[in-house]
Design a protein around this nucleic acid. Sequence first.
DNA 1: GAAACATTTGCATGTTTGCGCAAATGCACT
DNA 2: AGTGCATTTGCGCAAACATGCAAATGTTTC
Lengths: 111, 111
Amino acid sequence: MSSSKSFPGKCQQSLADHMRPDLFKALCDPVRISIVATLAAQAESQTVGDLTECCGIDFSGVSRHLKILREAGVVNADKNGREMLYSLKTEELAETLHAMADALIGCRDIA
Amino acid sequence: MSSSKSFPGKCQQSLADHMRPDLFKALCDPVRISIVATLAAQAESQTVGDLTECCGIDFSGVSRHLKILREAGVVNADKNGREMLYSLKTEELAETLHAMADALIGCRDIA
DNA sequence: GAAACATTTGCATGTTTGCGCAAATGCACT
DNA sequence: AGTGCATTTGCGCAAACATGCAAATGTTTC
């Protein structure tokens, strides 16, 4: 009800809530995109060592990138013995992107 | 056909194509998100001066942010006399986000 | 306990980024 | 031509970022 009442302020707020700059920041680096793409293409979780192969940098850098992705909620991290298993939060990420798109379209309809 | 054949390499490529770090880079800044949200909430195009109100920085900075958004394909820029009218490419942006989400889910299904 | 291994963290360095200010550009109006 | 307004661009600076190397942490295996 009344969702068709023109109320740009509310829409702006809702958009600001949905569009998460921190998530975009996590995904704005080519190396991190490379990591995400590699994880998406593999059914099994990957170790830092595995993921180091896909991006041409030192594994310490990969570890740092993974930390950023983890904190942004893009990947899961599970400790298995001395190695760390990283996997993509595919569903959540896709849902978040969808929600952003929907919020945009919703704003267009209101405004 | 054969889209269900397990082919992680292809998926990784397709994802790398869809996930555009440059777009994420354009959207990773709070001020730029603020601009996007403001544009989304308004039916009419906005000038640089208008948009300067929403984000608490100098208009020269706003102009620079708008350039970044323009080059990333997030906003339209139309010159009208001595002022510049900016509007959000709502459809394209929403479509791009959807495509990313779909590519992610597609990868999950294949891998 | 010691050695080997996977990952994280501290540190130094070069690069990028966002910002304000001031100058430059472009356009309208008289 | 000349003045005024909107926007862009050049410059300098401080903060943030990505990276490699080396040291530290945690874990397995012998």
